[in-house]
Amino acid sequence: MFLAQLKNELWKLFGKKRTYIGFGAFLLAQTAMMLAFKYTRWQSDFEKLLNGNGYLASEFISVLTVSVVMLIPQIMLLMPLYATLIGGDLVAKEAEDGTLRMILSRPISRARLMFVKWSAGIIFAIVLVLMLNLTALGFASLLFPWKGMFVFLPGQAFCVLTAHEGFIRFLMSSSFMAVNASTMVSVAFMFSCFNMKPSAATILALSFLFVSMVMENIPFFDRYEDFFITHHFKCWLLIFRDPAPWPQICQSEIILGAVCATAFIIGAMAFQVRDIKS
């Protein structure tokens, strides 16, 4: 029965157009960035960076390198927006539309309903990341060859890898990205369970992430960076360090998993005691 309920929740989620706004925006952004990389000074600047570090640029301007270059700004800027948009809709939109009242005239328990909805949100986050990574690889492979991988982000990541090793790291980074997206969806879901409009839930979740990011970047809070979830979001890039700092990555993943679970529990408890009225 749970699977049937989850399937129907996914029907609801993927049946409406606004779910695809994020997918469409990512496709547009990727196309624009890839063309910009290919046909502006971006590529030549990148080649200079490689050559300056003693690498042969022609060996590392590849599908994997360009994919990560395209993904970084999208993960930083677009992902929180679209993940929280969907998370904020999960409960609050149904309450606003009135369909929640119809669902709650049925014998399903509120806790189960919340778990079904949250699970659907997590699946959406995973699908969004999968699609994002696949299209990044797909678009990049149209214009660039399959060669070695180079990732350079001052203070965060640096690696030079073979195509095979680079692809494995890319896949691992995708799974960490999915955890990030799931955490964003969970935070928005939590707000969505309270008595508020879907847009308010989305804005609150975005504000929460934004405040976390701002505080994390204030030098005073350097020693407390582990307390900011946006700090742990960066672990998808840490995998590109050589060697990968596994203890740090595992710690961040566990913390993000705990944030997801906590957000779900708070949301479900708030929903449990709420009165649902027209």
């Binding site: 029907w11 049946g15 409406k16 157009k17 539309d97 009135g98 369909t99 119809m102 005239s105």
Partner: peptide, 13 residues
Amino acid sequence: GAIFEAPVFYDYL
């Protein structure tokens, strides 16, 4: 079973 005023559904389905 229950019916509420101004019945609302998932219009896109």
